[in-house]
Amino acid sequence: MEAIAFYIFAILITGLFLVTAFSRNILYAMSSLAAGMVLISGLFFILGADFLGAVQLVVYSGAIMALYAFGMMFFDATRDVKEKNTSSYLVFLLSGFSAVALVVIFAAPTIGKHIEPIVTAPQGLDNPHAIGAVLFTKYLIPFEVAAVMLLVAMIAGIVLASKKMDESLSEIYLDADPETEKKEQE
């Protein structure tokens, strides 16, 4: 039962991400990326990691929605994008890396037999509680460091984008004097 579900999910995810990599249409690429991310949560659900599965859904659906917003600004969604492959060194490097990654992936089951978990899952707790217990005891410092990094990124974003943040956007356009606008751009 689980094996059947796993293979269905695995084939779908691989197929969708292949579409993401090879499609020239921005709409296909992003839609298959989003669908693939949603389906990855299915793998988490099969493994019994319900909480991580739901987090995968929440986080990636939001993140890819932001990607769509950029895609909408930069591309015409109904046309194919003309790709420019000027650097053959880049292609060479990337394909080399992919080959190495493939070897690692195929070797992983052999290596994986010798892996033992550093932290065993706490017994008698359900999924979200167990994750919380491990996250806030064993891995507290990495967790907090990640939180600080996100805070830094957020403050940097606010500083970069904060011009005229205390005004409503539509009021800026109403009040804006074309002359001063030009000077500011210069």
């Binding site: 909480f51 739901a54 929440v58 929605m65």
Partner: peptide, 18 residues
């Protein structure tokens, strides 16, 4: 009956906006 019911419902409704 999953033990993360709320998160799942919210996440799925979010995906619905696609």
């Amino acid at each position: 009956d999953m033990n993360i019911g709320i998160l799942f419902v919210i996440a799925m409704m979010g995906v619905g906006l696609y």
